[in-house]
Design a protein around this nucleic acid. Sequence first.
RNA 1: GGGCACGUGGCGUAAUUUGGAUAGCGCAUCGGGCUUCGGACCCGGGGGUUGCGGGUUCAAAUCCCGUCGUGCCCGCCA
Length: 638
Amino acid sequence: MLISDFTVSYGKSTRQLFSQMLSNVISKAYPDADIPMEKITASISGQKQAHGDISSSISFMLAKKVGKAPKDIAKSVAEAIEARSPIMKVENENGYINAYFDVKEYSKNVLAEILEKEKEGASSNLGSGKKALVEFPSVNPSKPWHIGHLRNALLGDSIANIMERCGYKVERDDYIEDLGLQIAESIWGYMNLSDTPDKKFDQWLGEQYVKVNKLMKEKDISGEINGILKNMENLDTKESKLAREVSEKCVDAQYQTAFNYGISHDLRIWESDIVRAKLLEAAIDVGMKKGVLHKESEGKYAGCIVVDLEKMKEVEMDFKNPAEDTKVLIRSNGTATYSAKDLAFHMWKFGLLKDEFHYSATDRKQRNGKQLFTTAEKGNEGSFGNTDIAVNVIGSAQRYSQLILKALFSLMGYPEQAKNIMHVAYGEVALESGSLSGRSGGWIGEGKSFTADSLMDEAKNKVREKVAESSRKTKGDIDDNTANVIAAGAIKFEFLKIAPEKILTFSWDKALDFGGNSGPYCMYMYTRAGRIIEKAGIGIPSPEKVDYSGVDSSAEFGLIKLLSESSDILEKACAEYRPNVITDYLIDVSSSFSKFYETSPVLNSGKLLDARVTLVAATMSVIKDMLRLLGIDVVDRM
RNA sequence: GGGCACGUGGCGUAAUUUGGAUAGCGCAUCGGGCUUCGGACCCGGGGGUUGCGGGUUCAAAUCCCGUCGUGCCCGCCA
């Protein structure tokens, strides 16, 4: 039987085997205890510990039920268990039941599995048969991406990668709000300031936007801007056409940044096309017909279409926030609030409204090689939307509005969809001093600006510096593409290793520190490993034929056990929408590998050569694979 | 006023969702290691009452109650 015939990874199947062994003994010895299988499985701790290779704390739970001491239970259970490969023996210690692996057998199977599935990498069927639509970063088309937008985009991109690997059919969408006030202000500047674009368009536009906002404080131009805003909403006006044109130029410039970072999308969705497709009217219509929304005839909200928040409390338990009991969806002047637009957009996402979009393919190059589509005035039908899960990568500041959205879905009779709106609420990116405000231009900074572009430039400079100072063998030379890959890897890792919900306080020193727990550290271990394989000059032995009986050092077997967890790590990262699960694992694997090669020579290891070369190859495969999930490439030399 | 999130050595963080054996790692600091598979590395030392106070439990960073601090949110802004 091939390793790849296992439906779950070898590491996981070994743990399942242990659960089963425990369950068999326990159900016989303590038939009245009624311990469900899940409890047994949950009692088994991971492989990164000193007591046995895996261990269970189930005796403590049993102790209460059967009125015996945990130690005695553990002893009797451990003695009753019949070992089955790869679990070689089971012992009790302080009430815990510890299993020990057959090192030879376990090593062979783990490495064989990794090398057999080299191309596929870690895998899971968590999402098979389901579609997930991941929306990110949905930046206003009036400025360049700053480091806050970058955090959003990196989270979105890697979550999309992770879900894709878990079997979801993934669509990556970017929602572009080209009809908002910010754009009206930009357009005013575009029409009234005599500047001409002399740099990357998003940068130029963003700086101009800040100028307009300064000007607004000096003289009253808000009337003119409101006039532009109003005209923009009518799609036939020259203001509207200009807004779309300027926005497109800006988004194209933003996507140059995305390209440099290796972030890709499937579809751009324009707010003006949502208006064109009349999604909003359709959504409000549904809401009215279902009696969820109604038009107020008197009082404070006379003339508005609103939803009663008291009703929402019935469907959404967490909904305790609002000070008022009414939420406006359509203003008395007929324009839509953010919540209304969000409702319509999400109904489209779930295929609850007829898809009236026109789609057209762009010729924009993407790093993933896939074609980027856009909604457009004219175009074809497409197979977008119709998702099972909507993953929204949006700042935690918008928790409340995301909650309203979910509650609206519940009220309108879509409880399943409400449950499947996943808000990946990430903490803001803060500066050590000041804020990243777009309006006041905090992102421009003093000296270095806090844009994704300038971060990349700084990181590339740092990479070149590092190469020049430390490398004896690469002659201090590095091509631009390699510098880009390393710089992007460093930045991505740095951002993704912080748990999403935490505030990320940006500092140049930290961002450009390539030592310790960093992307370059993992990449470096990969290149070192590559050189070892190269020098060994025996290719990669077939794991089936390798003799692992010499594997005994804890560093070596520890690494092998760690490698066997990659699919579980993938699944955990996916279920929790937390790429930092993967960065942590990568640090573990990389430092484990580092310890291994410091202590265990490969090239002069005699009989162990085949086994160790195989281990090095498998480690490379896992590092590369996990980095790929984060959107990070490896390099051969650095 | 109400809601949500966060609080872990000097600094940055992991483990909290699913309670388990000695709270893991990086930076900084002190001391070691390149004629031995590339030093963006490794080894060792010092540094923690996991904000505080209670409670539950054989077992609490983790669960419950209270409290303090920080941030965000509660609009006919988006």
